[in-house]
């Protein structure tokens, strides 16, 4: 029953995100715990325009601002490439002229390698994008960085395409 309720919450999330995430009770599984009490809350993840899970094409970044972006990287690299820089600069210009605006950079890797080490690689990619934004005049306090490493892949599979789709940084505008 709770799963149906949470499904309903998720499906109308565009209208009432805050309501869903604050009113949801602790998620108790069906089986009573004999040894352990159940864990804590689940948190609804607001849908993020700009990227979806399991999308199998490279995201086409809008040239308007503010618009969430996905910026891609080469294998084992956190070097900024020219493809996508123009759109990223448009976001940088917006951030400079709107000092109250905030973005979150989410760094990712493909699925090869150790999970925690890949958190470090995703972090490096965040740093590269942040450095680029700051070079355009964005203030550091407008940028928050998190690395997911190989968690939350955009594409599944052991193929060059899937790997390329996963080596990315998402730029996500945050509500203040």
């Amino acid at each position: 029953m709770k799963k149906v309720i949470s499904l309903a919450c998720v499906s109308v999330l565009s209208l009432s995100l805050a309501a869903c995430s604050t009113k949801k009770p602790a998620h108790v599984p069906e089986r009573p715990a004999s040894d352990y009490e159940m864990g804590a809350q689940t948190y609804a993840l607001p849908g993020q325009p700009g990227y979806q899970g399991n999308q199998y094409e490279f995201y086409k970044n809008p040239m308007t601002a503010p618009a969430n972006q996905t910026y891609y990287f080469a294998y084992d690299s956190n070097v900024m490439r020219s493809n996508g820089l123009r759109e990223l600069k448009i976001q940088a210009d917006y951030l400079v002229t709107h000092p109250a605006a905030r973005v979150r950079l989410e760094g990712y890797t493909d699925d090869r390698g150790s999970r925690e080490y890949n958190i470090g690689l995703g972090w490096r990619r965040d740093q590269s994008v942040a450095h680029f934004l700051e070079q355009q005049g964005v203030r550091p306090q407008q940028i928050k960085m998190v690395s997911y490493g190989k968690e939350r892949p955009a594409a599944l599979g052991e193929t060059e395409k899937a790997w390329a789709l996963n080596r990315r940084v998402n730029l996500v505008y945050e509500k203040k």
């Binding site: 599984p29 715990a33 040894d35 159940m38 864990g39 948190y43 609804a44």
Partner: peptide, 13 residues
């Protein structure tokens, strides 16, 4: 099995 935490965000390590 017992569940300690359920989440819609990743859990690691």
């Amino acid at each position: 099995p017992h569940t300690l935490l359920k989440s819609t965000q990743p859990i690691m390590s």
